[in-house]
Each structure stands twice: as structure tokens, then as C-alpha cells.
Amino acid sequence: MSETRRAAEGRVGQVKEVTSLANPIVKDIRALALKKYRDVQGAFMAEGLKLVIDALDLGWTIRTLVFARSQRGNATVEKAAARAKAAGGLVLEVPEKVLTAITRRDNPQSVLGVFSQRWIPLKDIRPASGDVWVALDRVRDPGNLGTVIRTVDAVGAKGVILVGDTTDPWSLETVRATMGSIFAVPVARADAAAFIGWHKAAKMRLVGTHLKGSVDYRAPDYAKGPLVLLMGNEQQGLTDDLARACDTLIRIPQAGRADSLNLAVATGVALYEMRRHAFPVTQGKAG
């Protein structure tokens, strides 16, 4: 929702009961299912109480919290609503049919939040020794992108850089796949030329996965300097320009009939190998 519209309606920090799908506020939220409206509004939806609480805990700007009427009296939901109000957001109480329409799911979560998008400028990434970033060249599948973001969070890598024309990290499908990690993992974007220029200026070691890579992914010493793991498009792999920009091209051996791994799986395999070399040993959670 635009700030102008918010101010005009005088609804900051309010609680409002809405029952109609024709309500203009509901229409604005439903429009966020489309990328062009997410871009215009600079906003996105996160579905589920856990994701909303994660975002609030990490200081994200909430614009609207929507909860099902059936959750009235639920102490955890009401606490989240109070936090949203205190942060200046609008709180909507709606029947389930409205949540179903917004999320386009027959069994929607009982709570969703609308948050402001947050991008980190590529120029602001100043890697330190031991840092690992993941760059994705033209990733197209929302599930893959969401799973990579979740894996980056689990491994303890620093963030994700989207290169070229990629799927939208703020789509509802991608946000769902991150399981809340979208709020913990910085995301940057750049075209290929800008990314290559940044990599050279930052003096980061660029390691790309490639079917023609001559180096087994377990062979390099990843402890040397900050790293960027560069993963190619699901169908086409890396562009020639990006492959040439890599300091090392690695491959993940295939023992069976499959000639490649799913992008998110391959990213996880490579990242955990890098973690053994480059990341400090910490006492983390199992699983």
C-alpha cells in the first residue's frame, strides 16, 4: 500500500474488521500476488504466524497484519497483532474466505503479514576473511530460490546475490519455501556485468559449478579468502561470461544415470563442503 493511501485513510496503528473481498485494503493486499504490484508497492506477503513473528523479531517494517476471526482470543496471535500496531501497522481481522482469496489456497494459514521489501546494495557488501556468499545466475524456480535462501541461513553463509533476470525473492511461493529465512538472509541483485565488476573490486574468490568443471568440488582449499559460490540457471547453467569470470570451476560427480542435481540440492552440497574449510566451527543446532 502506498504511504499516501495509508495516510489518507488514517489507518496507521489501527485494528479494522473487514469482511468483503471488495474492500480496497484487501484488494491492495491481493494484488501483491503479482510481481508488478509488489514492485510498485515495494511490499510482499509472508504467510504464517511463525514467519510474522520472525520478521518482527528481526526488525522488518510491517505494513499490515491479517488474522482469521477464528483466532480472536489466541494469546500468541493477539500479542503479534499488538506488536504490529505498536510498530505503526494496520491490523485486519477477517473471515477465512478473505484469507483464502488473498493467499489463493483452500487451507490458508490463519495469520499473514505485509512487509516492506529490503534489498542490500551490492556496493555495500564488503566481505571479510571467511565470508561466503551465494550468487545465483538467472534462477527461475521460486522453490529453488527459497530453498537456497533457507540453506544459506542454515549453513551460516552471509547472503544471496541474484544475477540477471531471476525469479522474485518476494513472491509468496519463494517466501514460503524459505520458512522464514528470507528475514535473516541479506539479498542483493545485479546484472552480470555489475556482478563481475564487483567481484573483481572486492577481491573475492569466485567458485562456479559447471558440468565441464575440471575440479571435483571436494578438492579446493576453500579456506583461502572470502568466497562467492556461483550457481547457474536450472536448465542452461552459467553463461559463458560468468564461467570465464570464475577463479575455479567445480563439478559435483554423478554416480547414477542422472547427469545433474537439482539447483538447490547442488548448492547445499557445495556449501556444506565449503563450510568444512572456510567457516568457523560453532555450536549449532542439529538437523
Rank of each mutant, 00 (worst) to 15 (best):
A55M: 10
L56M: 07
F67W: 05
A68Q: 07
R69Y: 05
R72C: 13
N74S: 10
E78W: 02
E78K: 07
K79A: 09
A81R: 11
A84F: 04
K85F: 10
K85N: 10
K85L: 11
A86R: 15
L92M: 15
L92F: 11
V94P: 08
P95E: 10
K97M: 04
K97A: 09
V98P: 00
L99V: 05
L99C: 06
A101C: 14
I102D: 05
N107D: 10
P108E: 06
S110M: 08
V111N: 00
V111I: 11
L112Y: 09
F115K: 01
I120E: 11
L122I: 14
K123D: 15
K123E: 14
I125L: 12
I125K: 03
P127I: 10
P127S: 13
P127T: 08
A128L: 11
A135R: 02
R138I: 08
L145H: 10
G146L: 14
V152W: 07
D153T: 00
A154I: 06
A157I: 00
A157R: 03
A157C: 01
K158W: 02
G159C: 03
G164S: 07
D165Q: 09
D165H: 08
D168W: 04
D168P: 12
P169S: 13
S171V: 01
L172E: 12
T174S: 05
R176A: 09
R176N: 08
A177S: 14
T178Q: 08
S181F: 02
F183M: 04
R189V: 01
A193N: 07
A193P: 04
